Computed example of a mutant assay.
Amino acid sequence: MFALAWLGFWLLVMLPSQVMLAQLARDLDPGRKVRLASTFQGVMLVAIVLAVPLAGFLCDRTRLAWGRRRAWALGGFTLAALAFALVGQSDSVPVVCGLLVLVAFGQAGVLVALSAMIADQVPVNQRGRASAAFGAPQVVALAGGMALVTEVIHDVSTAWWVIAVLALACCLPFLLGVGEPAPPARTRPVGGLLHNLTPPRPRRAPDYYWAMSTRVLINAGNLVGTAYLLYYVGDALHRPDPEGAALTLTLVYLVFCLVATYAAGLISDRRPRRKPLVLAGAAFQIAAALSLAVSPTWETALLAAALLGVGYGTFLSVDQVLTTEVLPDERTRARDLGLVNAAQNLPIAPMVGFAVLTLTNENYRALYAASALIVLLGAWSVTRIRSVS
């Protein structure tokens, strides 16, 4: 049921960034589709970057008999789903941007609450599997969701409210059916608002910031390569059915990602060495991006989809565990995980994607070279972590 709740969250997160915002931008203004898609992504990412630390601070300080994490997750799901359903009904760019901000605020509440549950309740030697329950639904959400919004539902406005309803339905079994233990007295935050919103000092928690850098860069590199996939298969590969081709590549990617997520999670629990698995995941992603930069063909794209799936799946299952092991204070877990997750949503990918495609006259080889470079920087960051092997 925990994995099902994450499935609902990933439906609201993955589908807009991968295909739904691209569809919406294309329908609103085909001539400015890249600019609009980048703007919509940037608005959501900036909003969640700002909202997550505050949501984490408030979640840590909430005391409810029903469950502080459950309350924030349920409230976040409700807000995000309602706003999400309305996005597709609007043909006004400012209104869409405003609704996307509300979606991001709801996502922030869900993200800090569900992430903190892993650190709160799961023993260290089982966190690889718990992290797989966090990461694997991302794969299922993207595969099933893309099939739904590209092959089954052809009306953009209908797709937005259908996904919203599905996401809300996915969270209810866990949030309404599974209890949450009361937090120990020692985990009660101390100090005022400014103290608890202030991030830990880098000198006190260097590994925490290196883990944050790893998360930010590897996710950004992955998103640079995948966010413009719909345009890549149409404009660079010249496939006659861009949406069908994008779905095929996504399904290949997701099958390999799902297998790698579970396998890496089990390996991580049995042999608790996190960094080598993160590095292996980064290496596969770099290989995928470089293959597309060197040879933009359909056959290469299929190979790259498989490599990217193995790489990102491995990263997904281990990075969350690594992050929980470098948290500087058990009293501020939601805040500190929230800061990592907020940083992960910095609008690096849309900024890089827009800049590269604009400056190079939509040269996708340059885009994938940039993707490889960003992931490489993320791999270097994980080597700087000292407290986790």
Rank of each mutant, 00 (worst) to 15 (best):
S115F: 05
V43A: 00
G109H: 06
C97W: 00
D60N: 09
D91M: 09
L86H: 04
S90G: 07
F57E: 11
V110K: 02
L45D: 06
L64K: 13
T62L: 15
A47L: 06
Q107S: 09
G75M: 07
G76E: 09
M44V: 05
L82W: 08
A80S: 15
F57N: 09
F84M: 09
F57K: 12
A47C: 06
A73C: 14
V110Q: 05
V49G: 06
V43T: 11
L82M: 14
L74K: 08
L111G: 00
F84E: 02
M44Q: 13
F84T: 02
F57T: 13
L50W: 05
A71Q: 07
V112D: 07
V112N: 10
A65G: 15
L100Q: 00
L74Y: 08
L79N: 06
G106L: 04
A108S: 14
A47Q: 07
A65Q: 15
F84N: 00
V87F: 03
G109S: 10
A47W: 04
V95W: 10
S92T: 01
A65T: 13
A73F: 11
P94K: 04
D60S: 13
G109V: 07
L102K: 03
L54M: 13
A83R: 08
W72F: 15
L102E: 01
P94G: 02
L111A: 07
T78C: 14
Q107A: 11
G88P: 03
P94D: 04
Q89P: 06
L50D: 08
L99A: 03
A104E: 00
C97E: 07
T78W: 06
L86A: 12
G75S: 11
V96H: 01
L86N: 04
A113N: 12
V96P: 00
L58G: 05
G88Q: 12
L58M: 15
V96R: 01
V93P: 04
L50E: 08
L74A: 15
P94R: 07
V46M: 11
V87Y: 00
A104C: 05
P94L: 08
G106C: 06
L58Q: 10
V52A: 13
A80E: 03
T78V: 14
V49K: 00
A108D: 06
V87N: 01
M44K: 01
V112L: 05
D91G: 05
L99C: 03
L99M: 02
M44A: 13
V110S: 03
A85M: 10
V101P: 04
G67E: 10
V95K: 03
F77W: 10
G75W: 13
V52S: 13
A85T: 09
C59K: 09
I48Q: 13
D91I: 10
P53E: 11
L86M: 14
V43P: 06
P94W: 10
T78I: 13
R61A: 15
A104Q: 02
A116T: 12
P53L: 12
L82G: 04
G76D: 09
Q107I: 05
S90R: 12
C97P: 01
L86E: 02
V87S: 07
A71S: 15
A73W: 03
V112E: 05
A55M: 15
C97V: 03
F84G: 01
R69V: 13
R63G: 09
Q107G: 02
C59A: 15
L79W: 07
A80C: 09
A55G: 05
A104N: 04
G67Q: 08
V43C: 09
L54E: 08
P53Y: 12
R63P: 07
L58W: 13
R70I: 14
R70F: 10
